[in-house]
Simulated scan of single mutants.
Amino acid sequence: MFDTLIDKLENSTYITLETTPGHSPQFSPTVDKIDALGLDKLVDGFSTTDNPLAKLKYNALFAAKMLQDRFNKPVIATMSMRDRNKIALQSDLLGANEVDVRAILALTGDPATISDQPHAKGVFEADSSLLLDIISAFNSGMNYAGKPLTYKPKELYPFAVMNSYAKNPKTLQKKMQKKIKHGAIGIITQPVYDLENAKQLLELKEIANNECCGERKSAELILGVFPITKLRTAQFLAAHVPGINVPDNWIEALRIANANGGADEEYKVGFELSKKLFDELKEYHPKIHLMTANQFQIAKDILV
């Protein structure tokens, strides 16, 4: 299962779809929606998020297990540094390993100060590099303290994330190099909204891989795509989400659509822009992670 995913990442077309577990003790309704739309037949794998924005959600590792069991497709389970120290991180990885949840997206995590849980405190023993280092240790048969594990874990596949835009591109390159140095095999970007941005990121990735080649490490870049179908979404991303660049022409097109045709025209224009971008990116660099905030009909419309 995972060998096929990694082979696609390195040598072929690679499409994964993000799922966000809900504020609920049941993830099965989400799995059922994916099944009903046949999305499992349109992607190479899935991901599960881990309490994004520090809001309480269903566990990402359990959700990954459910998706894998239903569709026999690999799932990248997110693990946030915000909520676990190195003991909990390793314990979760040990349990997940036996049930074959072995692709892990290492994330530092949003601050606990924005949580919906009163007085929640972040752990943050380190940034996501610590989790990548733990995975490297596990793949060598040891825990992070260097003590051999009773049984060597099945191989783990570490992924990381990074911004898609910065005023100084050199900062993006340095962040890529750091993640590659700590063992990430795939780096998923924040949403990309134009082809030139994607080309720049791929150039930076090549430089980062070359800088790390002395350590015989490299990573593939996976372009994040988040369809925009509402003007207010475009405005919010542009104004309030660091590391993303929404082009002015997208915002203007959505503004005109909203003024002339209301919500329906706004959706139509936004979807057309998003679909065109997805198709362009897939043709240029067919390594894409699709994010739709569980709006799975939009995901299907983009993918077909």
Rank of each mutant, 00 (worst) to 15 (best):
T48I: 02
N97A: 06
L61W: 01
L156D: 01
A126G: 13
S12R: 09
I298F: 09
V192I: 05
K73Y: 06
L131V: 12
A96Y: 04
S128H: 06
G224Y: 12
K170P: 02
E280I: 05
E272S: 12
C213Q: 15
Y151N: 11
N85I: 11
A103W: 05
L277I: 08
I114G: 03
L201I: 01
T13D: 14
P227W: 09
H285K: 01
N97G: 07
G45Y: 09
K181Q: 09
P74Q: 07
L130W: 10
G22Y: 01
K154M: 08
Y267R: 12
N294M: 06
D110A: 02
L130A: 00
L131D: 06
N168Q: 13
S24W: 03
I298Q: 06
G45M: 06
S136Y: 11
G214E: 05
V101M: 01
S218E: 14
S164A: 12
P111S: 06
Y144C: 09
G243C: 04
Q117G: 02
G224T: 10
S136E: 15
K73T: 09
E283S: 11
P21W: 05
D116A: 13
A166C: 11
G270E: 11
L37N: 08
A145I: 00
M291N: 07
D279Q: 12
V101R: 03
L149W: 07
Y267G: 10
M1H: 13
L56A: 15
D133Q: 15
L94N: 12
D279T: 05
A103L: 01
A77G: 02
K152F: 06
F296Q: 02
D92C: 09
D116R: 02
K121I: 08
D50T: 13
F226H: 13
T16W: 08
Q295M: 14
Q173L: 08
L237K: 05
F27Y: 13
I185Y: 07
E206Y: 10
T108Q: 10
L223V: 03
T233D: 10
I135N: 01
L303G: 03
A112C: 09
D301R: 13
D264T: 09
Q200E: 11
K57Q: 15
S129W: 04
Q200Y: 09
K57M: 11
P118G: 02
T48V: 02
N139P: 12
L231R: 07
L303S: 03
S47D: 04
R255M: 15
N143T: 03
I188H: 01
E98W: 05
S12M: 05
I76Y: 00
R232T: 13
A106C: 14
M291E: 02
P169T: 00
L93P: 11
F296E: 03
F124C: 06
I244D: 00
S47I: 08
A263E: 12
D92Y: 10
C212W: 08
T233G: 05
A77H: 02
D32P: 11
L156V: 10
F46K: 03
L290I: 14
G122W: 05
Q190T: 04
I298K: 05
V269M: 07
P118E: 04
